[in-house]
């Protein structure tokens, strides 16, 4: 710090406290709402202090006790979200690290073409090509399956670039030494490259898990069968009740459950998260 100006430090603290409060405000309101009885919302304004119904709200949504507004219990949706997020994160990492290995450590015809084909995926987010991609999935009979939920999202240029960057910084001497010792490409990959890129893999995993967990429109389109509904996509259906007042305490309990896993991941692995975020944008 250049000089110690008391009022500026106080101002900075005030700004940060205000920021933290504004950031936390919607989640606080949601949590409070989830602890009340449904009747608490007819009076006109949302309560600001916790109620006594928290255990019931969460137990009901997890076991499917609110059958009028949702056809499957939230615990099943959480399981589906978990399967989808893990498949996307692991799938992206596996296919990217393999193709980056091929592109950096081999020279083969069409290498440049392969690289550019992967690069193009960066420019085609799913929202943009949504209608034709849906047609492809439906022609392949992949609607209502975990494969349909995850596979179309797992091609990733960013992850491939990240691993390519990591491999390029690994000294050539390591590979020469491995070759002199008689290691083939797969052994070199398994015993040298994988251990050296461990933290990059972990950092990337954090970002990709969040990406997969938070998918919204794709699960809505691909799953017409409620058995495969994911939690983030399911909330909309709960809130869209036509002829009755939404059951706010259940909707908010579901929202809290839906944001809990990725938020816990970010807070517990903050260092990896920041690393992943900064690296994938390079």
């Amino acid at each position: 710090m250049v000089e110690n100006q008391r009022w500026l430090n106080i101002l900075a603290h005030l700004v940060l406290i205000a920021g933290v409060l504004v950031v936390a405000f919607p989640v606080y309101i949601a949590f409070i709402a989830s602890t009340h009885e449904p009747s608490a919302f007819v009076s006109g304004v949302v309560p600001l202090l916790p109620g006594s119904n928290a255990a019931n709200s969460y137990a009901d949504v997890l076991t499917g006790g609110v059958s009028s507004q949702m056809s499957v219990p939230i615990s099943l949706m959480l399981k589906n979200s978990m399967i989808m997020a893990l498949s996307i994160a692991i799938g992206k990492i596996v296919i990217s690290i393999l193709s980056a290995f091929a592109i950096v450590y081999f020279r083969f015809p069409f290498r440049q073409a392969a690289f550019w084909m992967i690069f193009i995926t960066l420019m085609l987010p799913v929202e943009v090509r949504i209608v034709p991609t849906f047609q492809v999935i439906s022609n392949l009979g992949m609607l209502n399956s975990y494969a349909g939920l995850s596979i179309p999202l797992i091609a990733s240029a960013t992850a491939t670039f990240l691993f390519r960057q990591v491999f390029l910084t690994i000294p050539d001497e390591l590979m020469e030494a491995a070759r002199i010792d008689g290691a083939g490409p797969l052994k070199f990959f398994k015993d040298i490259l994988l251990p050296l890129s461990r933290t990059n893999i972990a950092a990337l995993f954090v970002i990709l898990f969040i990406y997969g967990w938070n998918q919204y429109i794709w699960p809505i389109l691909v799953t017409t069968d409620d058995k495969y509904q994911t939690i983030v996509a399911g909330i909309k259906r709960m809130a869209d009740v036509v002829d009755s007042e939404p059951l706010w305490n259940y909707i908010m309990a579901t929202s809290v459950l839906a944001m809990l896993p990725p938020v816990v991941v970010v807070i517990m692995m903050q260092r990896l998260f920041v690393k992943g975020l900064v690296e994938t944008e390079k």
Partner: peptide, 23 residues
């Protein structure tokens, strides 16, 4: 402060929408 400010990144856009829609 950083920890208390960065976690909304993990909240799904759909959930963020639902929360503000409720407020």
């Amino acid at each position: 402060y950083t920890t208390l400010l960065v976690w909304p990144y993990a909240v799904a856009p759909a959930i963020a929408g639902v929360l503000w829609w409720f407020i």
